[in-house]
Design a protein around this nucleic acid. Structure first.
Lengths: 191, 191
DNA sequence: GCGCGATGTCAACGCATGATGACATAAATC
DNA sequence: GATTTATGTCATCATGCGTTGACATCGCGC
């Protein structure tokens, strides 16, 4: 029952509902394909209210989505296990979180409207966090590459649902992806 | 001067012009953000003609874009050099080809309209080709992962233009990415 | 309990898009 | 050179979008 009906008037609660609905929709489909009316309906609200609160669709995206571009979940735990742990999270089919930054990234990065904002948020939050966490030589570059790997796998496995990946042995895939990520997290010179 | 004016009537040449323009546009922006009128104008043609020839926007995409989802350029040459060679191609800023499958992939994969078609074409062409070329244990899985890495890097480096990546030392980036890809191409067990 | 600001709704606008069918015109055929 | 077909254009439609301003209604303070 996603559409909440008959909420007592409460601006803050309404905002939360709108932003939660926005998260779900912007994560599931490209920015242009998400209509304000859908979000409004799921939040049990009229579409005009969204513009009243956030000024515009872009404003809603900015308020509801941008702050979630962090990788707190991923960097919690020790880094010696980073690869396998993150691979397990990404590949888990039952993995339902309220908001998946990677999916949202894929669905919004190509939009000229919000793409630049997303890129900057990703750079300032996720890359910076991971970079600081792993340290070592060329930490920023390695962190960005690790995120790129995650983004690519998400694109091909979760969004495109590439047959070769979905039908592969999950354990083997997890193993390969984990090793890939761990190799980036562990410092050392490339050669 | 992209807009060609006053072409003698020739269906085949017109089709080529339309499809070339479509390639450029569908590579540069998301599927929904590309208008038939833009493509038509760049091809020096009326938008209605596109629907006449291809039935619909989706039909044009299918005819113009899908066949190009191959990685012929990448798999030419010996595989011992694959990583560095492909990394160089991807990262080269002056790298202007008529059509870049990776960019088109990113801009169309999330569209519910054409996304599934793209996924299947990618799977049947690119992944299959690369898989056959590299061979070894779990060749398909490794090929798909390599493409995922390329996709992710393209997303973050070329589309998002992540500061951390664009401002990194190009040689270091090429080195890291090359090693990543080469590790996937070279067979052997992960552990 | 009344008024007034906060909260939310409604109808409508302007705009852009993909698609259609009627029309024009160049080119080929005889 | 007339006719006919292939090629291309024009005006227009239906639709969906984000956005806006006028209106309704709830709820708190006096």
């Amino acid at each position: 029952m996603p559409t909440t009906r008959k909420r007592p008037r409460n601006a803050e609660a309404t905002r939360k509902a709108i932003e939660a609905a926005a998260c779900r929709h912007f994560m599931a489909r490209p920015y242009d394909q998400v209509g304000l009316r859908e979000i409004a309906q799921e939040a049990g609200v009229d579409a005009a209210l969204i513009n009243r609160y956030y000024g515009s669709k872009k404003g809603l995206f900015e308020t509801a989505i941008l702050p979630h571009f962090s990788i707190d979940i991923l960097v919690q735990g020790d880094m010696s296990d980073f690869g396998r742990r993150v691979a397990g999270l990404i590949l888990d089919p039952g993995h339902k979180q309220d908001f998946d930054p990677n999916r949202a990234l894929l669905h919004s990065i190509s939009s000229p409207e919000v793409g630049p904002m997303v890129a900057q948020a990703l750079n300032d939050n996720a890359v910076a966090d991971l970079s600081a966490r792993i340290g070592g030589a060329e930490a920023g570059l390695r962190a960005a590459l690790a995120l790129a790997v995650l983004t690519g796998v998400d694109a091909l496995y979760r969004v495109a649902r590439l047959d070769t990946l979905t039908r592969a042995d999950p354990e083997a895939l997890k193993e390969r992806l984990g090793a890939l990520l761990q190799g980036l997290v562990d410092a050392g010179d490339p050669g």
